[in-house]
């Protein structure tokens, strides 16, 4: 009984971090409108791009009709533009020594960062998703999604955002070892663009790329949630779910290993 209570208290602190981060994210209303503008412009460009490509071909590409493609792109962009921004914060905290403040508190610093990141990502996701879907609807005049598809997209999308936060934190914590983590993050970002399936679904890529993509978390953050939205099947949902859990566990393990070795060699600036 006492043990259950302790575990509940431990979970409660991370849930609270998530809540506070969600509230803090909602404090930036001007930024919100700015990024929504960016989302709308990006989606229009992508919609017209795909419209032009489809105008050369009648029928579909690997099972993707123009309508499905529009909904797919809306779905991946909504996640991408909600992805973690925690890297800059980690960089700043390690460089300035502010990390000290979080090391004297009874929680795991990487998990604190992960839930902080997830809180603000969920806020952005809740705002961006309806806007992206409304645009897709205006453009296609057709719902290409089912209720089950939408549910699985939201579940996998939020799990994907958590995985993205963990990968970002793993990269961010490298700041203990390298002077600048930006190049590593840049590579990760481009992996999301390509084998993550941000712009082009992985189905349309060569067979070897499809195989390679299964060994990286990128596709499970973008492609799998988006594909589950438009081509829902229980089998695909369960497969995606398991892969995300597996990758989350692996990245979490790597992050805690990196953090425990990094904190041993920590030296803090500023006196």
């Amino acid at each position: 009984m006492r043990k259950t209570k302790r575990i509940t208290l431990k979970i409660a602190k991370y849930v609270e971090i998530l809540k506070v981060s969600f509230m803090a994210a909602s404090a930036y209303s001007k930024e919100l409108y700015g990024t929504l503008g960016f989302l709308i412009i990006t989606l229009f460009i992508l919609f017209f791009l795909w419209k032009t490509i489809f105008s050369f071909e009648t029928g579909d590409f690997e099972g993707f009709t123009l309508q499905k493609m529009i909904w797919y792109v809306a779905a991946t962009e909504a996640i991408m533009l909600s992805s973690s921004r925690i890297r800059l914060r980690i960089d700043e905290e390690i460089r300035s020594g502010n990390v000290s403040n979080f090391l004297v508190k009874p929680f795991s610093y990487p998990l604190f960062l992960a839930f902080d990141s997830l809180g603000s990502s969920i806020f952005r996701f809740i705002v961006r998703m309806p806007v992206a879907f409304a645009l897709a609807l205006i453009f296609t005049l057709k719902f290409e999604i089912s209720l089950l598809g939408l549910m699985s997209y939201i579940i996998l999308g939020i799990m994907g955002l958590f995985l993205d936060a963990l990968v970002t934190i793993l990269i961010g914590l490298l700041a203990f070892y390298v002077e600048d983590t930006a190049p590593i993050y840049w590579i990760y970002n481009k992996l999301l663009f390509t084998i993550g399936g941000l712009l082009i679904p992985i189905d349309m890529m060569p067979a070897f790329v499809k195989t390679i993509s299964k060994f990286f978390p990128a596709r499970f953050i973008l492609y799998n949630p988006a594909n589950s939205l438009i081509n829902f099947s229980w089998e695909f949902f369960m497969e995606s779910f398991s892969y995300i859990v597996l990758f989350t566990a692996i990245v979490l393990l790597l992050t805690s290993l990196l953090f425990s070795s990094a904190s041993r060699r920590l030296s803090i600036n500023g006196g």
């Binding site: 208290l9 431990k10 409660a12 602190k13 609270e16 971090i17 506070v20 509230m23 508190k105 009874p106 929680f107």
Partner: peptide
């Protein structure tokens, strides 16, 4: 106050 509430949970 929001930070106080958060840390009350963090300190259990």
């Amino acid at each position: 106050m929001d930070s106080f509430n958060l840390f009350s949970k963090i300190y259990e």
